[in-house]
Design a protein around this nucleic acid. Structure first.
Lengths: 335, 335
DNA sequence: CTGAAAGCGCTTACAG
DNA sequence: CTGAAAGCGCTTACAG
């Protein structure tokens, strides 16, 4: 491995001077600059990041902590974050917190601390942000937090208005009895969506709303719709708390030979690609997930490079994507 | 941050001695060992990995390179690898190579080189393994390689016999005209599956096989089945080169109101969870993907710790998982 | 503008 | 069994 010393020797200067051009910092004469640049190219020299890290207390790496990488929401997010990370000269550590107890996650965070990880993207509820803040002064970007966090950057989607849009859409196609299967209420996301649903159903004469607790999984969608149908056989619209629930609902309705959307229309939330592989394809409120990943990495690196630690909260818009599960005519035309 | 020097001072010994107990290496008297251990606990000291890395030329981190983390095959793999990695005290760098030109990937690999990454898990065809071997002497585990690689560990699934099992299964339920939509032939996986299909269809009197090129995507499944039906309206079985193709096929058959499996039975390959969210659920040859991820990380770390660099090739069995898309009776009973 | 020196926090021969 | 010293490959005041 060629070192800064080798370069210095060949260029006839001191390592310090080479370091200066490497870091683009401090004075270096035109003349030496040119020759050093040339030698660096010739030797194809790349500074050892570990050594550099030791003095700079930085590793040029970010950590992304997700609940479960096999959940399409998180893998999409990871893809976006990874792209920008790599593009800006960093690398991305992946941490899967799912199912682990907070204690273990704390251990892992501690472990990372000793590696001079430059910043964290937190996309999981398995870590207590307050604890995090107390223990780590590293830059962090928190996704889908339930509130702004002092000195950190939070990024979320406007779940409240997204939910309103979903509900209004179901109403607009004529649904009269709409059930919302909502996610766990410790999750800000789930809470906001439920709130949006409630708001939209208020003062809707002729239509009524039912709220049913679920847990953001396909299985939960299947079980919820079974229960709902027992109690309310006249439901004609489902607003699922997320796409996985919607997928479960669609699956079970298919099994029961209940026609979607003729008998029951279904709308999800998230915009994961799975909503396009079911039959029928599922209408959903699409979050810009990939973009959130990119943005998270971009903001994080900005914060690192500029020692920027103001409180910052970014809210992205979700948008309604209409597909077969709520378009009666589309299905009609196929028949 | 507390350093080894702080510990040494408090314990009344030299940093060298503390280092010895930290690394469990060299002689340390019982007496000092006990007190040093105590102080380490008290101060909650954890050695700085970067400093340690600089001297040991190691970073206690592995890199996982995948084609596309949003592909469920890879995210499942990543999950398994991440679990073991973390469990054994390492961390996992994620690299998404998809769509990038090899040159850019080479750059990225170079970048990682300077971080003392201890080993690589390569699960992508976007990197030329020969080039890799020439440039990096790091331990590596290669997944789904087309052949054994000297001094490295390769892990793959027995695609050939898996394909035979899939085909025999379709034959066993009475399919007479089976089409295999195969993946790109530069991919060893695709090649082996096609070979298995050919072998099984040989000497099958009363049944005939059709081979049709696809590309391992949902879209490809949709397009392939359209074309196939034009030319061969009497097809009654599809063996898809992978699950994504199978999902596309199922989707299109649903749209065309062609009954699965009564009119056409469908079998996929891979065992990704998506095969369980379609209607009907899809019969597939299940690869132990999660386990492959675990195994890859486990072998890699073993190689790192034991300087083990023998050629090693591991082949895992795939197993047939029968679901609705090939079980005529199950569907019958529902009607 | 440039180089010698000290330092980042650890580990590893080496001498005792 | 233990400590002083050198070294891993950089960067950063500091002096000139």
């Amino acid at each position: 491995m060629t070192t800064i010393r080798d370069v210095a020797k060949l260029a006839g200067v001191s390592p310090a001077t080479v370091s200066r051009v490497l870091n683009n910092k401090g004075y270096v004469s035109e003349e030496k600059l040119k020759i050093i640049d040339k030698v660096i190219k010739e030797m194809n020299f790349q500074p050892n990041q570990v050594a550099r890290g030791l003095t700079k207390k930085s590793s040029k790496t970010l950590a992304l902590l997700v609940t479960d990488i096999t959940n399409p929401f998180f893998s999409e997010l990871a893809k976006g974050a990874e792209k920008i990370t790599q593009q800006l000269g960093y690398s991305l550590l992946l941490g899967n917190t799912g199912g682990n107890n907070p204690e273990k996650n704390a251990d892992y965070m501690n472990f990372l601390k000793n590696k001079y990880i430059d910043g964290f993207i937190i996309a999981t509820h398995d870590i207590d942000v307050e604890v995090l803040k107390k223990n780590y002064k590293s830059p962090m970007v928190i996704l889908e937090a339930d509130k702004d966090i002092e000195n950190l950057c939070t990024i979320k989607v406007d779940n409240y208005h997204g939910a309103i849009e979903a509900t209004k859409h179901l109403l607009s196609i004529g649904c009269q009895k709409i059930a919302h299967i909502y996610g766990p209420q410790y999750d800000a996301t789930a809470k906001d969506r439920l709130r949006g649903f409630k708001t939209s159903m208020k003062h809707q004469e002729g239509s009524s709303g039912i709220e049913y607790p679920g847990d953001f999984s396909i299985m939960s969608g299947i079980e919820s719709i079974q229960e709902l149908l027992k109690k309310h056989s006249d439901i004609d619209g489902i607003f699922a708390g997320n796409d996985l629930i919607a997928i479960g609902v669609v699956k079970e309705l298919n099994r029961l030979k209940i026609k979607i959307p003729e008998q029951i229309a279904v709308c999800g939330f998230d915009g994961i690609t799975l909503t396009q592989i079911t039959s029928p394809e599922i209408t959903t409120i699409e979050q810009p997930i990939y973009k959130m990943g990119e943005l998270a990495a971009e903001r994080l690196i900005y914060r690192i490079n500029h020692s920027f630690n103001e409180t910052e909260s970014i809210e992205l818009k979700a948008k309604l994507v209409i597909r077969e599960s709520t378009v009666k005519s589309a299905i009609d035309s196929k028949q």
